[in-house]
Design a protein around this nucleic acid. Structure first.
Lengths: 342, 342
DNA sequence: TTGAAAGCGATACCAA
DNA sequence: TTGGTATCGCTTTCAA
């Protein structure tokens, strides 16, 4: 049996509530007693039971994150890696731990949300990868459960959300290619139901309109492998563009691989711009031009707001925060002649 | 106020313990009553409070993972990505959630372990990145707390551990280069205090002995950037080898970048073999030869044993499990002439 | 300032 | 089969 507050109390010859007061830093406890209790606690290496404590208080000290992915789908996912890294960075030293879960499909995702929030296992939730109609959000709102959405709230004004302006991101990626002189630009997106795809496509449409009559949009599953397959179709298509905006760095890697195995070169045979500006961009020969999304900043702001919400401080900040993104130009989008002219 | 078991009991006109029995699937409860209670529970969307439940039972339903990294150090870390992905995969559908934390230094790491285990916040812990003398392990053993080490237990027979044979991994990587005809082989390791570095170096020493008098070992911090810097020194060194074994894929990427910016080619100017066999290996032109460590299998076995230990089933399996690794040969280690001869 | 006692929401042991 | 009651370890009134 492990040591409890009552044990400490007995050893220190005080009542159990007194030990509790010492622990919570209550001022009205005699210094002599306080130090005696503290000493007993430290010699017995006592720590309060987190479960009993969180049962009594409101706080559980856990923030939940649920991601929906196929098995193995978290490996090699640059967004996931940045997200986790940023979340962990934020939580260092804070009285919250991350409770991370993965689900394989929509149904189990919803029931997992139920399990997490109705069972009061976590104090708040981080939502990512919002989809057009998101049942999770309705449930969370109905339960008045603290959560923050990393993504597009799709007009729902009552949601706390932090996001990029993905329409803008799609536009600047495309405008950059236009500025580089490309006149037939395509877009390789992820699954059509994801808002990140929709929004960036919208930005692409706005910008490409200026130079080409007909938009060229392809869809593929996430990941380098799926993108490599779709890239094959794109390269063989009669509509083959001369430049391609790709939804993320990892999918862009798939395109690069396909180009390489077809003995074609970047940017000569196909210029590329992608999103995330992860470390992968430096691995491509010549570098991969990419729109940086400042995920660290997004996560920092999202968690900061979520914690405030949990702790009931006034969430003075606006409901929807848009974190700016920026283009990092590298070799994949700059025609060689221009390089030579420098 | 959220709904409790007592509320359900009142509505269904039964006692509160009966509701508890229905919930736990106790057989001795009248079918009529059972269905009535179940209906009330579902109409009110009731879920038992996880904290109250875990206070009463032993299980908290959480498995802890603590990683020591500098800020941002989780991004672009292929080991971390595989590890997390495999852990999440394993836990899908199981009654455990992952409680993930990061610490910046050793001191806070130890106190975080205290916080996690003495406060009974988690049911068990996954340890990674063991270092030569690991204070965490002594504490966990002293507390008889369930944990599993992913890594080398360094002769400590009482520890449950799952690992590669990293000496073997280092050896087959080196032997492959020897078989390819290289006679001056170097090793780029991580920080010298990490057991993974030590063990793979040991394997390298065993295998390189056959073809060269003097071993050539360099150390660098983890990550592509640090490796790129060290690669510069290696390339300019009078001891410059003709082939290099690199501790992991991401560090190998740093070496590739350095070679590229020095206008040198793989494998002609420098052959490469690394470890992990992550998706990065396919991104290098010609492919990067790498020793696959079967991290999914390691994690699966580690968690399976940990869960058994937590649930007090007989941990019939051996204390130390060694998961085999295998070499994936790609272009980075095969001299061009050999390719031509095929 | 301190201690006694009442919960928090569940489980488990009784007796009925 | 069911309900009363003690209990898990802690926080928080309420008296003393």
């Amino acid at each position: 049996m492990r040591i409890t507050q009552a044990d400490i109390a007995k050893i220190a010859n005080v009542s159990q509530p007194t030990v509790s007061r010492v622990l919570s830093g209550d001022s009205r406890v005699e210094p002599t007693i306080r130090s005696r209790v503290l000493e007993v606690m430290s010699t017995h290496n006592y720590r309060p039971d987190a479960r009993a404590r969180s049962l009594r208080q409101k706080r559980a000290g856990l923030i939940g994150l649920v991601m929906k992915r196929p098995k193995g789908g978290l490996t090699d996912d640059p967004f996931f890696a940045s997200l986790m890294s940023a979340i962990m960075d934020f939580l260092v030293g804070k009285p919250y731990h991350l409770c991370a879960d993965m689900t394989l499909d929509e149904t189990s995702q919803v029931s997992l949300y139920d399990e997490l929030l109705r069972s009061r296992r976590v104090d708040g939730l981080i939502l990512v990868e919002s989809e057009a109609k998101d049942e999770r959000i309705h449930r969370l709102q109905a339960d008045q459960f603290p959560f923050v959405l990393i993504g597009n709230p799709l007009g729902n004004e009552d949601i706390l959300s932090v996001d990029n302006d993905n329409v803008h991101a799609g536009r600047i990626a495309t405008e950059h290619l236009v500025a580089q002189g490309f006149r037939k630009i395509g877009f390789l997106a992820g699954p059509p139901e994801t808002t990140v795809s929709r929004d960036r496509i919208e930005g692409y449409l706005q910008a490409s309109r200026a130079v080409q009559e007909r938009p060229l949009v392809w869809h593929s599953d996430f990941g380098a492998n799926a993108a490599r397959e779709t890239a094959r179709q794109i390269l063989e298509s009669p509509d083959r563009p001369e430049a391609l905006v790709v939804l993320d760095d990892f999918m862009a890697m798939g395109v690069v691989q396909r180009l390489r195995s077809a003995a074609q070169r970047v940017p000569d045979d196909m210029a590329l711009v992608s999103f995330n500006d992860s470390a992968l961009c430096q691995l491509v020969e010549g570098g991969l031009t990419s729109v940086g999304l400042n995920i660290e900043s997004i996560v920092y702001n999202a968690l900061d707001r979520l914690v405030r919400l949990i702790e009931d401080e006034a969430p003075s900040a606006p409901h929807r925060l848009v974190v700016p993104c920026e283009l990092s130009v590298r070799g994949s989008s700059v025609p060689r002649r221009e390089v030579a002219q420098r």
